[in-house]
Simulated assay, not measured.
Amino acid sequence: MKQFASIILLVVVIFVLSSTNPGRAEYIDWINHKTMDKSSNLLQKGILSLAGKPIFDAGTKKSDYFIFSIYETDFSDVGMGKVKSIGIFHQFIPLSSFDKQ
């Protein structure tokens, strides 16, 4: 009986993790807001609000592992290096810094 309960619990946990795995559009919105928050220049904020999403979408690579995803965005062209984040439970956790690497 304990083994059956453990299997049911495991199935429920996997289902919850897979259903809360955030998508690419959510990540693009999140990274756009994060970079706008880090920007101190009004011109940069304006450019990011107008053209940020397509730029981030083009520079982002997603690795989907069913229960979580890893996103890597390349900011090398603007001197910020690469940003790597994990998406789980509809949240994003930066694995590398937004600062210059």
Rank of each mutant, 00 (worst) to 15 (best):
L43T: 12
Y65D: 15
G87W: 01
K84F: 11
V83D: 02
A58V: 12
T73Q: 00
P94S: 09
H90C: 09
G79C: 08
K84N: 09
G46E: 06
P94D: 15
D74N: 15
I88E: 03
A58Q: 12
S49P: 09
S76V: 11
K62L: 10
A51H: 03
I93N: 01
Y65H: 12
D57P: 08
I55N: 02
A51L: 15
S49K: 15
K84C: 07
P54S: 12
P54Y: 14
F89S: 07
I67A: 06
I93R: 02
D77Y: 06
D74T: 09
I88V: 13
F75N: 09
Y65Q: 15
K45Q: 10
G81H: 11
D74W: 00
S76Q: 12
T73R: 02
S96L: 13
F68G: 01
P94C: 12
Y65V: 00
T60N: 00
F56L: 11
L50M: 12
Y65F: 04
Y71N: 04
F92G: 05
V83M: 07
K53G: 01
S63H: 08
T60H: 04
L48R: 02
S49N: 15
S76H: 14
D77P: 08
S63I: 07
I67M: 13
T73L: 01
K62I: 04
E72Y: 05
S85G: 09
I70A: 04
S76Y: 13
I88Q: 03
Q44V: 14
I70H: 05
A51Q: 09
F75D: 10
A51E: 11
L43F: 01
F75H: 14
G59W: 02
G81L: 15
K84D: 08
S49A: 14
F66R: 11
L42Y: 08
I67Q: 06
T60E: 01
Y71S: 00
F92M: 13
Q91H: 10
Q91M: 15
G52E: 00
L50G: 05
D77E: 12
P54C: 14
K62Q: 12
Q44P: 01
L43C: 00
Y71D: 01
S49E: 15
S63Y: 10
L50D: 11
S69M: 05
I86W: 08
D57E: 14
L95D: 14
V78A: 02
L48H: 03
S69L: 02
Y65C: 10
S69K: 04
L42H: 09
H90T: 04
T73P: 00
D57Y: 03
V83L: 13
S49V: 10
F56Q: 04
I88C: 05
G59V: 06
Y71P: 01
S63T: 09
L43G: 02
L50I: 13
G79E: 08
I93K: 06
F92D: 13
G79Y: 07
K45W: 00
G59A: 11
S85I: 03
L95T: 12
I47L: 11
H90Y: 07
G79H: 07
F75S: 09
M80P: 01
S96V: 07
L43M: 08
L50C: 10
S96H: 14
L43K: 06
F92W: 08
T73D: 05
S85D: 11
I70S: 03
A51R: 06
G52Q: 00
K62F: 00
N41E: 07
S63F: 02
Y65S: 14
S96G: 10
Y65P: 02
L48C: 02
S85R: 05
